[in-house]
């Protein structure tokens, strides 16, 4: 069973429907005990870092998340679900994350430009990823594929070997990480049409 963690933030239905479309059942759950019964776990997330980490704590999700990661079960973070894995975030003051991946979440700098036009923040829309490391998540995914992003903050891992893909928006930033059984994307596979569904399929087919 694939469990999608519901901690009261945003649109979880698209992730669930994405798995269903490619033939895998996924359960949206607000019950931390269900995570321990799942073969694979997805941590989605939109909204503010502070509120999300607060909701994970209040919902009793932190310990079960750390446990399933330590046990080696395939784990996928999406967007804020990537950022939450890090040590800390600068969004609305400094806030501690789950601490699974050492590093910090920072905002795109002010005043970025490209070809004489300023670059708006949030970084919103379809952009290309450069694949940097082998991961089953990117099976049958071409280098340079367009995926859908919407975010104002990005992750800076201390250890660059966890970077699985990068993207350019004023600067080169980390678009995906992989460390053992933990994978996470800054972009939204569930909103990236066929390419995104392929990644969900790759995740669903991994050996847990």
């Amino acid at each position: 069973m694939i469990a999608i963690i519901d901690y009261g933030m945003g649109n979880l239905r698209s992730v669930q429907k994405g798995f269903e479309r490619i033939g895998f059942a996924a359960e949206v759950t607000a019950d931390p005990a269900r995570l321990l019964e799942a073969q694979k776990i997805v941590l989605p997330g939109v909204g503010a870092f502070r509120d999300c980490i607060h909701n994970l704590q209040q919902g009793g999700f932190v310990e079960p998340i750390l446990q399933v990661i330590a046990e080696g079960r395939p784990f996928l973070g999406i967007c804020l679900g990537l950022q939450l894995l890090f040590t800390e975030s600068e969004e609305f003051g400094l806030h501690k994350g789950l601490g699974v991946i050492p590093g910090r979440v920072v905002r795109f700098p002010e005043g970025m430009q490209e070809q004489g036009e300023k670059l708006p923040v949030p970084h919103m829309g379809w952009n290309q990823i450069s694949l940097k490391a082998e991961t089953p998540l990117f099976n049958n995914i071409a280098d340079g594929s367009n995926v859908y992003f919407v975010h104002s903050y990005y992750v800076k891992p201390d250890d660059s070997t966890v970077v699985a893909a990068t993207c350019n928006y004023g600067l080169e930033f980390c678009a995906a990480i992989r460390k053992d059984n933990v994978m996470a994307t800054q972009f939204h596979p569930e909103k990236s049409q066929g390419i995104g569904l392929q990644m969900l399929k790759n995740f669903a087919e991994m050996n847990g």
Partner: peptide, 8 residues
């Protein structure tokens, strides 16, 4: 924006 995020 505070409840659901600026992105939405």
């Amino acid at each position: 924006a505070e409840r659901f995020g600026s992105q939405c």
